[in-house]
Amino acid sequence: MLLSNDRADHTAEGQTVAPAARAMAFERERRREAVTAQDTIDVQWADRIAAIARSQDQAAFAEVFRHFAPRVKAFLMKSGADEALAEECMQDVMATLWNKAHLYDPSRAAVSTWIFTIARNRKIDLLRRYARPEPEELPWGPEESPDQADILALQQETTKLADAIRTLPEKQRQLIERAYFGDLTHSEIAAETGLPLGTIKSRIRLALERLRHAMT
């Protein structure tokens, strides 16, 4: 299994280790034991998106496609699209993924999260026939190469969140599912999910802060 330290050493080669980086290294050491197989898999997805962005890597894309395309299609069908429309729309989502690969920032979203947002936006464009208003993009991005520790930490939070969803009481889990598949209206959605969202939010907030500091 690929551990976080191997990855970080790999990217930090030849660079002076700043105090902040040293603190991060300690944190990595502390977390080392906690790196699960799932975290490693998630980081590998992020690497594949980076390979698509860097060198239009078709093999990496094929792997991402094999895993996510059937899920994106299932998501679209569950949201009300028929089979043909879902196939068409899914291909469009996956093509968008290719074209936006250079905008993906692994310190702010897991690959599954990022693909979900693309699929959701496409679904809305299709259902409502308008381009959905999206937040302004940040003026920086993955080309400023986010810290590997940030990436791993975010993947770990995402894994924890996914585990928490799986262990929710059935009724609660169904409610969240219905919310995300569009079965509930906004006035029916209550945000008390019972999920540990505070930690993942803090992670992303930290990554945003670090990025803003690096840019100004």
């Binding site: 899920r71 299932a74 599954s112 999260t113 693909i115 969240i176 599912e177």
Partner: peptide, 20 residues
């Protein structure tokens, strides 16, 4: 950041879907 948290919930659901 909070929005990204809620989107991560959507991502986790997507990842957990049965394949079509």
């Amino acid at each position: 950041a909070r929005l990204a948290g809620f989107e991560a919930v959507g991502g986790a659901m997507l990842d957990d879907m049965d394949e079509a």
